Simulated scan of single mutants.
Amino acid sequence: MNKVMSNKWIIAFYVLPALLLITILIFIPLILTGYYGLFKWDGIGEMNFIGLQNYINALQDIKFWDSAWHSFLLAIFSTLSLAIYLMISLILASKIKGASLLRKIYLIPMLLSSVAIAQLWIKVFNPTNGMLNHILMFIGIENPPAWLADTSIVLYAIFVPILWQYAGFYILIYYAALKNIPESIVEAARIDGASPIQIAFRIKLPLIMGVIKVTIVLAVVGSLKYFDLIYVMTGGGPNGASEVMASYMYKLAFSSNNFGYGSAIGFLLLIITLIVTVVIRKVTASKEEIQY
């Protein structure tokens, strides 16, 4: 086996199909997106080369920076929510009764499409017939807000279904990592007199820190490019209060027929995401990984 894998031609034979697929489906579209951003183009007609003007306009576009700020807010909330998912996973991994049923319940949102989730939460947030406002009025709040029509709270209202949608995904990752910790390590800590809280924070969390770092990157990158649920629920409104970078790009390219400018926004989104990913990896990097 070692002799076979030391042959460069055999390695190239195995790697080439995947490399071609990645090139065709990922790298070429990315290059074309950056290229189209150099043109004034409606997506159908003649392409007029304007150089970097679309990129300059994007950097001077207040709406673009507002949408970028909303995406960063979602990334911050998604990262903070990981602490909640981690606590739930620690509880589920501690052999409580009904843990198996709870895991299945947490995974339900993952089985639904984003459009179905959006329609569900639109009904929940309905200002007149929605379940949420009925509950608020029941407990004595006479004038509950119009969640998806109020520019000051619509963004935070949308964050709730987004975080709910991916809760099961992160809980499952953390749960699998925690169950992979050898029971002998935990038992040794118990024999030494460690409390459940000490075991959780001084034994288990350090041992799965590599997984936690990966989920931070996934949460941030996923938030920066998030699109579908926000577009279905509000379309970026009202008055751009829930606009994110991906929805703003979509509107420019396909609703306003400004494909060149939309491509420039999309390429800037790629660059921002890459920069943020590199920064996160640098910040969370550690010299030593705990082995077990």
Results as ranks from 00 to 15, higher is better:
Met245Lys: 02
Leu136Ser: 03
Trp147Pro: 08
Ile62Ala: 15
Val124Ile: 15
Val232Tyr: 08
Glu288Lys: 11
Ser100Ala: 13
Val283Trp: 13
Val276Lys: 06
Ala167Val: 01
Phe125Gly: 00
Thr277Leu: 09
Tyr292Cys: 11
Lys97Gln: 14
Trp9Arg: 15
Met137Thr: 12
Leu172Trp: 10
Gln60Phe: 02
Phe259Glu: 03
Pro144Arg: 01
Ala253Trp: 13
Ala12Tyr: 09
Phe13Met: 12
Glu142Lys: 14
Leu224Trp: 07
Ala285Gln: 00
Tyr248Arg: 00
Ile26Trp: 07
Ala157Thr: 12
Ala12Trp: 04
Leu252Met: 10
Ile230Tyr: 00
Leu82Asp: 03
Asp228Lys: 02
Tyr55Val: 00
Ser184Lys: 08
Asn2Val: 09
Met137Cys: 05
Val279Cys: 10
Ile275Trp: 00
Gln165Phe: 07
Arg202Met: 14
Lys282Asn: 15
Gly235Met: 05
Asn126Ile: 03
Glu46Pro: 01
Ser247Tyr: 06
Leu82Ser: 04
Leu90His: 14
Ser263Phe: 12
Leu136Ile: 04
Ala188Pro: 11
Ile271Gln: 02
Arg202Val: 10
Ser195His: 08
Tyr250His: 05
Ile271Ala: 05
Val124Gly: 04
Ser100Phe: 13
Ile216Ser: 10
Ala177Glu: 08
His134Phe: 08
Ile122Pro: 05
Leu32Arg: 13
Ser242Pro: 02
Asn48Phe: 03
Pro127Tyr: 03
Trp41Ala: 06
Ile76Phe: 09
Gly45Val: 11
Ile290Phe: 13
Ile272Trp: 05
Ile10His: 09
Ala99Thr: 13
Leu207Glu: 14
Leu82Cys: 06
Ile11Asn: 05
Gly235Asn: 03
Pro161His: 04
Ala177Pro: 00
Glu289Gln: 11
Asn48Ser: 01
Leu19Arg: 05
Ile11Trp: 10
Ile212Val: 15
Ala246Gln: 02
Asn129Ile: 08
Pro127Arg: 02
Ser114Ala: 14
Ala83Phe: 11
Trp164Cys: 06
Gln119Met: 15
Ile272Tyr: 04
Gly222Ile: 05
Leu155Trp: 01
Phe169Asn: 15
Val244Phe: 02
Pro29Gly: 09
Glu243Gly: 08
Ile26Ser: 09
Thr277Arg: 11
Gly237Thr: 00
Ser255Asp: 15
Val15Pro: 01
Thr284Ala: 15
His70Trp: 01
Ser263Pro: 11
Leu132Pro: 00
Pro161Met: 06
Tyr14Leu: 15
Ser263Thr: 13
Ser247Ala: 08
Leu270Ser: 06
Ile280Tyr: 09
Ile91Glu: 02
Arg281Ile: 10
Ile76Trp: 00
Phe201Val: 11
His70Ile: 02
Phe138Trp: 13
Leu224Phe: 04
Ala99Lys: 14
Thr33Gly: 09
Phe169Arg: 13
Ile96Glu: 15
Ile153Asp: 01
Phe201Leu: 10
Ala194Tyr: 14
Arg190Ala: 08
Gly140Ala: 09
Glu288Ala: 12
Met137Asn: 12
Ala264Leu: 08
Gly140Pro: 10
Leu136Ala: 07
Tyr231Ala: 11
Val15Met: 13
Ile105Gln: 04
Lys123Ile: 03
Tyr35Lys: 15
Ile28Tyr: 06
Arg281Val: 10
Asn57Pro: 13
Arg190Asp: 06
Phe125Asn: 01
Tyr174Lys: 10
Glu289Asn: 06
Tyr226His: 07
Tyr226Val: 04
Met87Ile: 13
Phe159Leu: 13
Trp65Leu: 10
Phe169Val: 12
